[in-house]
Design a protein around this nucleic acid. Structure first.
Lengths: 140, 140
DNA sequence: TATAAATTTATAATGATTATAAATAAAAAT
DNA sequence: ATTTTTATTTATAATCATTATAAATTTATA
């Protein structure tokens, strides 16, 4: 098993982000917790480790990460943004029952579409919604 | 050309929504203005017609429409929800330059994906982002 | 070590949405 | 037709995520 701290450090340096203590911890949290955490979740978890932490620092760090393309914000019918440290193309499934958001594999580039001639497409996202396996098996 | 009022009236009745004056006007606005308006846009436009209008009425109506499946809320990296009276499957393209959201045709059901075995999928949405034709031609 | 720059903190401000209760309008009952 | 009940709309306060701002702290540089 590789050292997460080290990977985080390299990722930040790669994108010319000064690897401050807090930034390392925020990105580390995102890479360890792949469950699309909210700002609140990140904040309350890290605050246990260093109680002087300010929520503004979480926002500062995340906004910087998004700006540099290290992290992508995802929104599915929520006002509360969630963040994903995986920027490679994949789909997001939101369970209406438990609220969890799952990643799934999808080849977005293979989808046929029309009506966007001369448009410049920088980003493609796919959102599915419904009931996840776990909830479906429990509430039947 | 058919009477929009009549279509709106029928759509509401179909979904067992009592067709009050305000509800008719809100849905009519959505059907005439297919540019994914925000609550603020709907509100300020209708307020010109009847100045006693309250913004809570817009929220009440829209939430009811969404609940009944008459309208779908769409969110692309925004905290401000936008609404679309077209519930048939199609993609949304958001222009990072002018902020407009365009519909485009896409056959979501033809996309191959994996990792959602035993999941119940109720809804599929595709979001593209980039620069629209108009902005691309102006800023070159 | 002193100075400058960057980062973090604390707090206030903003803005979208929801909650609540009063006011009004519509429907039903007598 | 009038009262009673129910539904809808209004006005306003509350909530909550996010951003802005400035002071405090830390880090880097001279």
């Amino acid at each position: 098993m590789e050292n997460v701290q080290e990977i985080v450090f390299d990722k930040l340096s790669e994108k010319d982000i000064k690897p401050s203590f807090h930034r390392i911890k925020v990105l580390e949290y995102l890479m360890v917790n792949k469950n699309h955490p909210t700002v609140e979740q990140i904040y309350s978890s890290l605050k246990k480790l260093f109680p002087t932490l300010s929520k503004a620092t979480i926002y500062n760090s995340l906004n910087l990460f998004v700006e540099k393309g290290l992290v992508q914000p995802i929104t599915i019918e929520e006002t509360e943004l969630r963040y994903d440290s995986t920027v490679e193309s994949h789909g997001h499934f939101k369970c209406d029952c438990c609220g969890l958001i799952y990643d799934f594999d999808i080849d977005v580039d293979s989808v046929a579409f029309s009506g966007l001639d001369n448009f410049i497409i920088n980003n493609k996202e796919v959102y599915f919604r419904g009931t996840c396996r776990k909830c479906a098996s429990v509430n039947q």
